[in-house]
Design a protein around this nucleic acid. Structure first.
Length: 643
DNA sequence: GTAGTTGTGGTTTTT
DNA sequence: CCACAACTAC
């Protein structure tokens, strides 16, 4: 989480840390009381997915009916509410929750066996520790005598309970935040935390920060107009203190290439006029959009940085290298072990692994311990045994270096494991992999320099919690490219927001689901992006966009119609087909539940109708299973009689 | 048994 | 379009 819990200790100096990092430090220090082993590995989403798949399988459930992503979301929601597996088991009522409960119990068993904690466990275990051990709570409360929590609107219930426990002894707690900037509801952030702060701490002084020193009135007007469309909010007025300046621009481009190129050229112009690169940022909804922009910036010779925190650590070459480190630090981490045992290929296949695993189970030892005793596994050929012992020996040799600087160890692993060689062999098609590895090793070297007693364990636990905030380098004079989420808390003279299209912003995954809440969160996301801009703001969309290899005509984001009138449209003619030729026709209204037919997608059911006159949008779930946003005037939908 | 090949399916945001 | 899973050829 981005919000930081800063604790100001009189003698120790101020600590600035994210909630999760604080939890890691607490859990390591009070491991016994918290019921964890200190060398735990922190599992991210990919690792969690592997574990939950295994848990679902162990419970004899069909992954088709119990999709891993769904299950993880459900477990995460429970953990964020501090409902552990046992507590949940006691309160299941329907079939699904009974199955979920079994998966939950099994999942926790698996993680415990691997000596791993997921992100939610870090919070849950810390909260339980603080609430269950008064001694620990008092000690920490005394150590952190003043508590300041930023971005409080994005705290979840577990974080709330941790903060409450830490402040319980002294009540020196200060929280800052803005409910209109809550963009992590999907991750369990509970807006009630900030709304209820005054009731939780009755003596608290409330300071409203309504004056905005950052943005021009032009930008604030657009932000204000947009966010006012959210029904579920406390109205608030932003008061501009700066004089009016340039108009906000809303631009339409032919396709995503043209959009990226136009943005790059406009940035080029700003730079030529004397603006620093660091003063400009480009925001997008999904990481996948960064590539086109990157290419455009290269073409226009503009220095840029792609701010990617988590994204970087999802790269397979990075995951491979880190998996080696994880296994060295925590041999129980079979998820990482499974990843590296045949990466790069060294002739250890699935069947071999299964045999060693069953040997491990029979003898009640871990997979790694079984690998060490590979000689004793009868079902293996001598050749295979040799490969296994060679692999284990390599790891054991690396182990000599797990305390001490990390960069040399990472370099050594990269070379001696064969990763370097296999990367070089596959090069040509993608030379960025080697670059990424070098970046990782450089970052490790930086860690070594900044840390008194560097170790692989400490390094791994730190980078697992690496955030987008850490990824942004304000020192470099480069244009920043990042997702709207990553933009939170930052500000720039010039801001470009691209891809303001239905399905992208708001994202289709959050359109018309359950209720309006998800749409409102998308609106807040754009609001956050807009309010990052100090002086110049350009929001754009492409008329055609290629997604997954298919070029489709897009629909401008409904949010563009909610910006009020305080902006200039692009001078280009709006050349959507049909519009010029045909006189405006009355737009038919749809209601949710209405069955409709589309010439390409066939039959579907209306999920939602957004009445915007000529620009009305209808969201339809088609029988093919896909949900699409369509502009009524182009969709050619016909209403079908409900039977 | 392993490794390369074809096929399927799913597909945001991040700690 | 990409990652992964089952499949087939060594």
């Amino acid at each position: 989480m981005r919000q930081r819990a800063a604790a100001l200790g009189a003698s120790a100096g101020a600590h600035i840390s994210t909630f999760h990092s604080l939890c890691v430090r607490i859990l390591r220090r009070y491991a016994d009381s918290a019921g964890v082993r200190p060398a735990f590995t922190i599992y991210d989403q990919a690792d969690q997915t592997r574990c939950i798949k295994r848990a679902v399988k162990d419970c004899d459930l069909d992954p088709a009916n119990f999709p891993p992503a769904r299950m993880l979301d459900a477990l995460s929601a429970l953990k964020n509410k501090l409902v552990d597996a046992d507590a949940f088991a006691a309160r299941t009522d329907d079939f699904f929750s009974r199955m979920l409960s079994r998966v939950y119990l099994r999942y926790q068993q698996i993680l415990a066996g691997l000596n791993a904690l997921d992100f939610d466990d870090l919070l849950l275990k810390t909260a339980f520790l603080l609430e269950g051990c008064p001694d620990v709570r008092r000690e920490l409360s005394d150590r952190f005598r003043f508590l300041l929590i930023d971005e409080y609107q994005d705290t979840n219930h577990a974080q709330y309970r941790i903060a409450r426990a830490l402040a319980s002894e002294h009540a020196n707690i200060c929280a800052t935040g803005d409910p209109d900037q809550s963009i992590y509801r999907w991750r369990g952030a509970d807006i009630r935390n900030i709304l209820a702060f005054e009731t939780d701490w009755p003596d608290a002084t409330i300071v409203k920060l309504e004056e905005n020193f950052r943005s021009t009135p032009n930008i604030l007007a657009v932000a204000d107009s947009l966010i006012a469309f959210n029904k579920n909010r406390k109205p608030k007025k932003l008061i501009a203190t700066r004089p009016a300046d340039d108009d906000v621009l809303v631009d339409a481009f032919d396709d995503e290439m043209a959009e990226a190129e136009a943005v790059a050229r406009r940035v080029r112009t700003l730079i030529d006029e004397g603006s620093s690169c660091r003063d400009t940022a480009v925001f997008y909804r999904v990481n996948a959009m960064s590539r086109l922009l990157e290419e455009a910036f290269v073409r226009n010779r503009i220095p840029y940085q792609i701010v990617r925190g988590v994204e970087f650590y999802n790269r397979s070459e990075i995951r491979d290298l880190l998996a080696y480190l994880k296994v060295l630090v925590n041999p129980d981490d079979e998820i990482s072990l499974a990843r590296i045992i045949n990466t790069p290929a060294r002739g250890i296949g699935k069947i071999t692994i299964d045999r060693v695993r069953s040997f491990a189970v029979r003898n009640g030892i871990t997979l790694y311990a079984a690998l060490k005793k590979a000689e004793a596994v009868e079902s293996l050929s001598g050749k295979v045994k040799d490969r296994l012992t060679g692999f284990v020996k390599m790891l054991e040799d690396f182990k000599d270096y797990i305390t001490g600087p990390v960069a040399p160890l990472a370099e050594r692993i990269f070379q001696e494991s064969g990763l370097a060689q296999s990367l070089a062999a596959g090069a040509g098609k993608d030379d960025s992999a080697l670059e990424n590895v070098n970046e990782l090793i450089n970052a490790a070297a930086q860690y070594d320099l900044n840390t008194e007693e560097p170790s692989a364990l400490d390094y791994l636990q730190q980078i697992s919690l690496f955030s987008d905030a850490d990824a942004y380098d304000p020192a470099g004079d480069r244009v920043a490219l990042m997702t709207l989420h990553a933009a939170k808390g930052l500000e720039f003279e010039n801001v470009f927001i691209v891809g303001a299209e239905e399905g992208l912003l708001p994202h289709e995954k959050s359109n018309g689901r359950e209720d309006e809440d998800e749409l409102e969160e998308e609106r807040r996301l754009l609001f956050v992006g807009i309010t990052r801009a100090k002086t110049r703001l350009q929001i754009s969309h492409a008329k055609y966009r290629t997604v997954r290899g298919q070029t489709l005509r897009t629909i401008p984001s409904q949010f563009l119609f909610e910006l009020g009138s305080g902006f200039s449209e692009s001078p280009e003619e709006d050349d959507y087909p049909d519009q010029a030729d045909e006189p405006p026709r009355p737009i038919p209204a749809f209601v949710a539940g209405q069955i409709v037919r589309h010439k390409t997608f066939g039959l579907g059911r209306v999920k939602k109708f957004v009445d915007m006159g000529q620009n009305s949008i209808v969201v339809v779930t088609f029988n093919t299973g896909q949900t699409k946003s369509l502009m009524v005037k182009y969709a050619g939908l016909s209403k079908v009689q409900n039977t």
